[in-house]
Design a protein around this nucleic acid. Structure first.
Lengths: 374, 374
DNA sequence: CGCATTACCTAATGCGCATTAACGAGTAAT
DNA sequence: ATTACTCGTTAATGCGCATTAGGTAATGCG
């Protein structure tokens, strides 16, 4: 082609402003060590040992010395471009700003993520949904995320379309939390169904025959799974699992009054179960209503929470329920992501929750007065 | 050289596994639009308009259409490699894990950082010091950081050698907090000297003649600045500013006893000032000792804190002192970093703190009993 | 009508690194 | 001694994008 024209055009970047000594490149290391750049790359990436690539110990030493004396550090952007990987894992959270808010706290997840990432030889990079800077064309999340080899998404507010897009491009993505929406999305989630079922089984085992679930008006998988587990649990124990076993309210704090609780108790309900949410509204409302109704908790009614109590109620007696193994979930997510990066399948994984006996449940009161259901 | 050999070797990356349709490149956009890749780059980066580069409106439209219909998103790694910039700002914090701990909370800074970054058209990327993954050779921080165009460093635990290295490589770095150590490091800091001085002036203005500073055994600039401001403030008001005006303890909780406080008061000290630290140890110890000594706070002794009270003491009466304008500091840091990226100088900037009258300081007790000092 | 502009666009090149075909130098086998 | 390898290293190439020197067609000027 125009090969003979070579030498005429001289585009590319202008040389760095004089006086600025730039960071050393592999080429400099190579020159100092008296070898080629390719050898430097082989040695420094350890690909020689791993793939049984033959590099003499002497050359290795020369290269490593040179790299060390120059203080060589690889350019992650170049690595990613050339090798399509740079050992970086992205973590994307869609909180308002930084994932620093303790209430929404992703923190426990992140602990597990961090540990497992380190174990797998990955470094972490965090992205947030808020900064909608001016990164040229394209959506905010989409572009930044590709700096890393793969990305974890936290929180139910992960925008479906961006996720869909990443999945379509076959970019390794793992969502923390069960999620069906974008077909082909990998996720890890807590097994709310089994855990909720277990809680109901425990209550039934204590002798409760009428158990009521209090939930908010939200159709996230996290909520529906709990309800399903609850109903399954009732069915398991042969208890009535009709729709009147679930009380659903958009504003429990308002709707869940002491009178209502008393009415339920009069009908024969001996145990209440609340779903866990960000705010813990259902649980708070339930506790408050039971208190207001003057009912003794482990004595007259039993309570359970399908999750962990909010942080600010940590000093109250632990409710019966289950704990989400958040660090384990995070770690599992990293493992799955690593597998995806390596070309593994995009599967969904459930992690079991730990049952918590707590101190808010006991046998139903008195010689059980049979209330003929219906 | 071996130019005639061209065509024989066919290295480079293996083509993507069949079936995986990859993310679109500029080349695809170009093909669809019927123009060259270079034109696509020009149009999409807006460099045509900015630099008065002549691109016909028709071509622009064709390119933009094509890009949109393909859902093109730029690869940040490639951008960074080619242009040495990708509109990403790094934020590096050296907390144990993620910057989620409320106590060390960098949160207020980050709020400002985030706002200003968005305003300047940058997106943010967070790094943490903990993940010491296996990113090949080289230090953890050093490599990751270069993904971004520049980086903010938070916290006094930023490792000096890595910072030095980045500065030496002329990588744009701004440290949040005054810092002299690596020569040529840009920083933004709060003006503790002036603020502390102001607090002392306020106490002197109330009539106090003997004021004592309680500080921890730490030589970070944040501490020494406060001491200097304190001493300057004493000098300003003509008060004795000898070394006995400062009580320094490695473990205030232990050393700062009620007896000691009583002794100081007997010597004529009427006001105490504590430095602010991560833990708030000095302030806690001071409060506790004064309480234990049975001294009424605004009445018999005045107290001041050179900073903001720890979060868990937020409901106590606000101490006299000053507040660090953390969001403003964060914003200023971003401005400075942007300037550095654009080639600006590596300067240090002080931001003024806001004086807080509080409720822990009043006039000294009684008809001032002149205690001949010494 | 010939030459200089001007307006638009493209070819060519490199950023820093990973990858791989191929080559030179030994060594073993035939 | 020639072939057949193995070992150690390098040259060449491209990742996806930005950049810049030209090139080409349309226009201005005398």
């Amino acid at each position: 082609m125009a090969k003979e024209a070579a030498g005429r055009a001289r585009p590319g970047r202008a040389p760095a402003p004089a006086g600025r000594r730039a960071r050393p490149r592999q080429a400099e290391v190579a020159r100092l060590a008296g070898v080629s750049q390719a050898t430097v790359s082989l040695v420094l990436s350890g690909r020689d040992l791993a793939t049984g690539r033959p590099i003499s110990a002497e050359t290795r030493a020369k290269v490593l010395d040179a790299a060390h004396s120059l203080g060589y550090v690889p350019d992650p952007a170049a690595s990613r471009l050339a090798a399509a990987r740079n050992n970086l894992l992205g973590v994307f959270s869609f909180t308002a700003t930084f994932p620093t808010d303790v209430r929404h706290s992703y923190y426990p997840f992140l602990v597990g993520v961090e540990q497992e990432a380190a174990a797998q030889g990955y470094d972490l990079v965090l992205f947030t949904g808020s900064s909608t800077g001016g990164a040229g064309a394209g959506g905010g999340a989409l572009s930044r995320v590709r700096l890393a080899d793969g990305c974890l998404f936290l929180g139910r507010h992960a925008p479906a379309d961006e996720l869909r897009r990443l999945v379509a491009d076959d970019f390794p993505v793992v969502h923390v939390g069960r999620r069906d929406e974008p077909e082909g999305l990998a996720w890890v989630g807590a097994d709310y169904v089994s855990a909720s079922r277990e809680v109901v089984a425990a209550l039934a085992g204590l002798g409760h025959r009428r158990v009521l679930l209090v939930r908010e008006d939200d159709d996230a998988p996290a909520s529906t799974d709990r309800e399903r587990g609850f109903l399954d649990g009732l069915a398991d124990s042969g208890l009535p699992a009709g729709s009147d076993a679930v009380y659903r309210s958009g504003d429990p704090r308002h709707d869940l009054t002491a009178e209502r609780v008393r009415a339920w108790v009069a009908e024969g309900v001996t145990a209440f179960v609340a779903e866990e949410t960000d705010t813990g509204a259902a649980w708070r409302a339930l506790r408050a209503a039971v208190d207001a109704a003057g009912l003794d908790c482990p004595g007259e009614v039993s309570l359970a929470l399908l999750g962990s109590p909010p942080a600010d109620l940590a000093d109250e007696p632990a409710p019966m329920g289950f704990d989400i193994p958040r660090p384990a979930l995070g770690a599992e997510a990293v493992r799955l992501l690593a597998s995806r990066i390596a070309g593994g399948p995009a599967e969904g994984t459930l992690v079991a929750c730990a049952f918590r006996p707590g101190a808010t449940a006991g046998p139903p009161p008195s010689p059980r007065t049979p209330h003929p259901s219906s």
